[in-house]
Design a protein around this nucleic acid. Structure first.
Lengths: 317, 317
DNA sequence: CCGTATGTTGAACGATTGCTCGCCGGCCGA
DNA sequence: TCGGCCGGCGAGCAATCGTTCAACATACGG
């Protein structure tokens, strides 16, 4: 209790420091005086406030060039939602920008009165997006996972996006209590029948918003790097034309979900084609251009969050 | 048109700069390189982004609301000190929160090198504040009472805030060795002259910090409930406009200390109007709103410790 | 065409900030 | 109980930032 009290008051102070710094525009020296701590501590508090995401930045101004790109993408692919953020030339694959927009989308949905069901995928971008969410109280909303949360070694300990999201928002959450891949189609058929799984799938299918990452499907495919599928399987999928994946469903260049290979033992919630509910993909970087284009062509997604450079590349194709 | 284009693109650049700075975490040097401008210009763009409110900060922490309220109260009433603590919805008149802050203020003052004189009032809040003080060794400081410490029945045995404070801090202490009320103005005049009393008053007038409770003045007035004044006197004071009290000095709604009635036989140290030394009032609860507002209006206090709900009510008036 | 008024720019410098390092006090295991 | 470990703290320093200033560009009126 004493620990959590300490913890509490430290975060309180961090929030105070952050408020004084970013909102009231005090210098760290002034903050130090006001909170009666050394300047070094004031600095630590401000930085704690940042790292604990007590404070978040939101850019309100639509940048013309980005708007333009978003409009053209919307037009070209008949999107229901599209946001383009500036590219950071020095770090063209940095997810901070799209993560921030994805977080904004999540927050907007969660802040709505009407109880919403939000389905979410996995990956670096989703993780970063959830990290950006400001703590809030949304017990009326439900968040559900589109992808199994158990890794090949049987642990559920790798970073759990859904749990973190639920933690921050107090929304009811429904993880998919399965390995991402099972051993065979037969095993999958069986498992799909068990109540907790079918319940999660049913919920996911009613989702008002699906937010997913988009992965490349090549020698750097995340499912391969993480050891979910073997090299042989990867190569077979590539032979079958796989270029990208959404919630681990491998797709070819036209966005058709491949009927065989590892897709046969994948437990992710199926992708309605064309996407019915608002389904937003978020990804940046040269290596994501082909997969994103595939997902767009195949109507796997009907919303997109990306950056300027990627948007430009998508429009060139 | 050229102007508005310029304007537009400048704001665009500002937004970009702000994005790169706050969201992507670039330094201004990096931004300067990316936008191909000098660092000075990059700085100007970031600062423009701020001043044009292209970017906003959102602090999602209960403390944020408190800070905001404190800032507004400080502004509205020209305060030198203001703290707002979260309201405990389950116990809107609980003094724990403000007591803790009041204790922190006392401790901060006592911890200072420079010998300080602290004058203190009475009441539930003061008592709770003193209870929160951590024992410390401050023989160089002096604490003095603003209110007599003898109750109507002649005993000095009721809870003695000052003695407890002195006990915890080892500070030299100067109680006011008088009944709170004497029988008449004449008697008061006489008693004021005796050395111990005038010494305490002289000391109190030099106090670096005055910390006082703020009381309502109605049928639940503490001075009435404790039997210091009669029902008839209370009613007379109410007819004269009394709404609240600070160190038992009855004030009207504008914070003017009433010239007659029970104030004529009150022994409390007079309230300099407007308050000169840092004079902090501490109070919480719906019934305290009117008295606090009076004290603020009348410049009886120039510092305040209260809670969110009370602060909100004060700002509405 | 010139001179002035206005505004923008980058260099420079002082202020502010972030970070590293050594120190201290509390906590845990021996 | 004692030593070692760990986390937090402040001193000090290097990086970063904010502002001033003089120079330069541009617009505009004479």
């Amino acid at each position: 209790m004493a620990v959590s009290d300490n913890e509490r008051s430290r975060l309180d102070d961090a929030a105070r420091a952050g408020w004084l710094y970013y909102i009231a525009g005090n210098t760290q020296d002034e903050i130090a005086k006001k909170l009666k701590v050394s300047r070094a501590t004031a600095q630590r508090l401000v930085s704690l406030c940042l790292s604990e995401r007590l404070i978040t930045f939101r850019l309100e101004h639509p940048i013309a060039a980005c708007m333009e790109l978003a409009a053209r993408l919307t037009e070209k692919y008949g999107l229901r939602f599209c946001e383009v953020v500036p590219t950071d030339a020095a770090a063209p694959t940095a997810v901070a920008g799209v993560a921030e927009r994805a977080a904004a989308l999540l927050e907007a949905t969660l802040r709505a009165e009407k109880p919403a069901i939000i389905a979410i995928g996995t990956g670096r971008t989703m993780r970063a997006a959830v990290e950006q969410i400001a703590p809030m109280d949304c017990p009326n909303h439900q968040v559900v996972s589109l992808v199994g949360n158990i890794s090949p070694d049987g642990s559920a300990s790798f970073y759990d996006t859904l749990a973190r999201l639920a933690d921050l928002t107090k929304a009811r959450h429904y993880p998919m209590p399965l390995p991402v891949f099972l051993a065979s189609d037969a095993e999958r058929q069986q498992v799909m029948k068990i109540a907790p799984v079918s319940r999660v799938r049913a919920l996911a299918e009613k989702a008002d918003l699906r937010l997913v990452g988009i992965g490349q499907f090549d020698l750097n495919a995340q499912v391969f790097l993480d050891g979910f599928i073997s090299r042989e399987e990867l190569l077979e999928m590539l032979r079958m034309g796989a270029v990208g994946e959404v919630t681990a469903w491998a797709m070819d260049a036209d966005g058709h979900v491949l009927p065989g290979g590892t897709n046969k033992r994948l437990t992710s919630v199926p992708l309605p084609i064309p996407a019915k509910a608002l389904t937003v993909g978020a990804a940046v970087g040269p290596s994501k251009v082909v997969p994103i284009r595939a997902a767009l062509k195949g109507r796997v997604i009907n919303g997109l969050i990306t950056d300027e450079a990627t948007a430009q590349a998508l429009l060139k194709g």
